[in-house]
């Protein structure tokens, strides 16, 4: 899908989120000089082609009681990484899973999983369960707990928007 000018104006206006009113797409359209139908059709098209990954509530995980998070990283041989990534990505404990480049010699890991939990022992138990279940014990592995969060704004597009 090619985004045109009107889509970009809509993306920019959507950055603040929807108004919490009965007809939010009407209100959004009024701020842009677009009809409600056009707003709905354009958002639907962006959702259908994946420009909008997900449309709904965006939570603050810390405030929801997920107080601990760790980035769990592995060095998986290149010929196996796609398969291991798919397995870990499908696991209930894992909230995000990506293959990324190694940065040798400083950083030997190429598979990154985010694990969120109520507290640190819960995250440690979840990681231990993954290692046990999928026989990952022989791969080099590190767990990086977060100690402080400085910024959680979401990425900005147009005026303001969020992406992961």
């Amino acid at each position: 899908m090619e985004l045109n000018d009107r889509d970009h104006r809509l993306i920019s206006a959507l950055g603040d989120g929807l108004a919490l009113v009965e007809r939010p797409y009407l209100v959004l359209g009024q701020s842009l000089g677009m009809a409600e139908d056009e707003v709905i059709a354009r958002i639907q098209a962006m959702k259908d082609c994946g420009i909008i990954r997900r449309f709904g509530i965006i939570v603050r995980h810390h405030e929801l009681g997920f107080r601990a998070n760790a980035m769990s990283v592995w060095d998986i041989p290149d010929h196996q990484v796609a398969e291991v990534g798919r397995i870990l990505g499908d696991s209930p404990e894992v909230t995000l899973c990506y293959r990324r480049p190694r940065r040798l010699p400083d950083w030997p890991y190429n598979l990154f999983c985010m694990i969120h939990g109520r507290d640190r022992p819960a995250v440690e138990a979840a990681i231990a369960a993954l290692v046990e279940r999928y026989g990952l014990g022989s791969h080099a592995h590190a767990v990086l707990f977060s100690t402080r969060r400085f910024k959680q704004t979401g990425a900005r597009y147009g005026r303001r928007a969020a992406a992961e």
Partner: peptide, 9 residues
């Protein structure tokens, strides 16, 4: 909640 709306790709 931080926002109610889209998560962009």
């Amino acid at each position: 909640l931080t926002r109610f709306g889209p998560l962009w790709h």
